[in-house]
């Protein structure tokens, strides 16, 4: 049996639910069972928000993540909140352009990358930070094949922004290839 539990956390408006949907759709296309649960506050923007993706070869009974083995943090609040309760070998990806990592955090494997800065400088829009993050996350955690992920990105983004999002995926992937531990 193989199950991955992925938590994508940050603030409302950062496209975390969409990122979760894209990841799940890619995994579904690869033949896995998937569940995407979302959690958000009453605010449409900037409140704490998270999407949880479970990818499994088995039937997914309980639909929420209890011990994430992959965690993405796009806001300080999310980083401070979700660093506890992780799986033993969890991988944590943090957007260093939005989160300050205090030196106390040594236990989980934390990788810090300037995701938002890369989105702005290399793709030209802050709005694709979620897809840059997906690219980086997939490069680091090896969740799905790049082919399935690119297909899902293309299927779930408006045609007008398709090329921009596909580029964002590549930028994230490249960013992670040169990544080192924080």
């Amino acid at each position: 049996m193989s199950t991955r539990q992925i938590r994508l956390s940050g603030a409302g408006g950062q496209g975390l639910v969409l990122a979760g949907i894209i990841l799940a759709e890619a995994a579904m296309r690869a033949g896995y069972n998937v569940a995407v649960a979302q959690s958000y506050g009453p605010e449409a923007r900037l409140g704490a928000s998270r999407a949880e993706v479970i990818i499994s070869t088995e039937k997914i009974a309980y639909p929420q993540v209890d011990k994430p083995d992959v965690l993405l943090c796009l806001s300080q609040e999310a980083f401070d909140k979700y660093l506890v309760g992780l799986g033993e070998e969890a991988l944590v990806l943090v957007d260093s352009s939005q989160v300050l990592i205090s030196t106390n955090h040594r236990k989980p494997k934390i990788i810090a990358l300037p995701l938002q800065r890369a989105a702005m400088e290399q793709v030209g829009s802050k709005l694709v930070t979620n897809v840059v993050a997906l690219g980086a996350l997939n490069a680091l955690a090896g969740i799905v094949s790049w082919e399935h992920l690119a297909t899902a990105v293309a299927a779930r983004t408006p045609s007008k922004y398709r090329d921009q999002n596909l580029k964002a995926l590549d930028v994230g992937r490249a960013l992670a290839s040169g990544a080192s531990l924080a």
Binding site: A24, V34, A35, Q38, I60, P63
Partner: peptide, 9 residues
């Protein structure tokens, strides 16, 4: 709320 917003294959 959870089932309403849950996405599954």
């Amino acid at each position: 709320e959870v089932l309403a917003h849950l996405r599954e294959n």
